[in-house]
Simulated assay, not measured.
Amino acid sequence: MFIRRVLTTPAFRLKSPFDELEEMRGRMAHLTRTLENDAAFTPSAGVFPLINVTEDADNYWIRAEIPGVKAEDLELTITGDHLSLSGERKIAEPGASAKWHRREREAGKFSRMIKIPDRVDGEKIKAGMADGILSIALPKAASAKPRHIQVG
């Protein structure tokens, strides 16, 4: 009787390679249930605004998607090799009697800090907005522009 109890306990059972897969499947199912029921994992607006930084021979270009934001609600500041873009996105509230079905667009203040790859001429920076896209031209400083050297 003692031998049968010792040999039939789960500790002496040989594990199949599929036992670990079954355990992993159970943990993944638990994780999925947890994430589905957790209100902390609701979708949010994410990083706003979305930004592209490119360059050509004379300028660095920053383009930001800011639909619905007015120019007077934006503030641009350049300090050394960083450009600060901040502002506020305002969205009209539908009213107290409205029933929400989905809310993905967020209102509020935002701020982004963008590192500029090299020195720029701060006196010649130009910014404009069209169709919800903010375009900023940052002219490269003379020391940052590539120079052609004649071999002679």
Score class of each variant (00 low, 15 high):
P67W: 02
R33M: 10
H82Q: 15
E22S: 14
K109S: 10
V53P: 01
G152Q: 13
D58N: 14
V120L: 07
E93G: 09
K145C: 03
M28N: 14
L83T: 06
K70Y: 08
T54S: 13
R13N: 05
R25Y: 08
F110E: 01
E106Q: 12
R102V: 13
G108R: 05
I136D: 03
P17D: 10
G152P: 06
A96F: 12
G108W: 02
R105H: 11
R13W: 08
K15V: 12
R27H: 08
A57W: 08
T77M: 09
E23W: 06
P43Y: 12
A107W: 00
G80E: 14
A137V: 02
E93K: 13
P94V: 06
E23D: 11
D19L: 09
F41S: 04
T42K: 15
D19F: 08
L21R: 12
S111V: 06
F12Q: 10
G26H: 08
T77V: 13
G152I: 07
I125N: 05
E106C: 04
N52G: 09
R33E: 09
L138T: 06
W61F: 09
L35S: 05
E65C: 07
F110S: 01
E36T: 08
I114F: 01
R119A: 14
G122H: 13
E106I: 06
V120T: 10
T54V: 07
I91V: 15
I114W: 01
E75V: 06
E93A: 14
R4M: 07
L7W: 07
A29V: 09
R63C: 04
N59F: 10
K90E: 00
I133D: 00
T8V: 03
L31T: 07
R112W: 00
F48E: 00
T32I: 14
A57E: 13
S16Y: 08
R27A: 14
G122A: 15
P94T: 07
N37G: 12
E123F: 09
R105K: 10
R63Y: 00
K126T: 14
R33L: 09
M113Y: 02
N52D: 10
E36H: 13
I78P: 00
R63K: 13
M28H: 11
R5M: 10
L35H: 06
R147N: 05
S16I: 02
I136L: 06
R25K: 15
A40E: 11
L134I: 04
V47M: 08
A142E: 15
G152A: 13
R89D: 01
E65K: 12
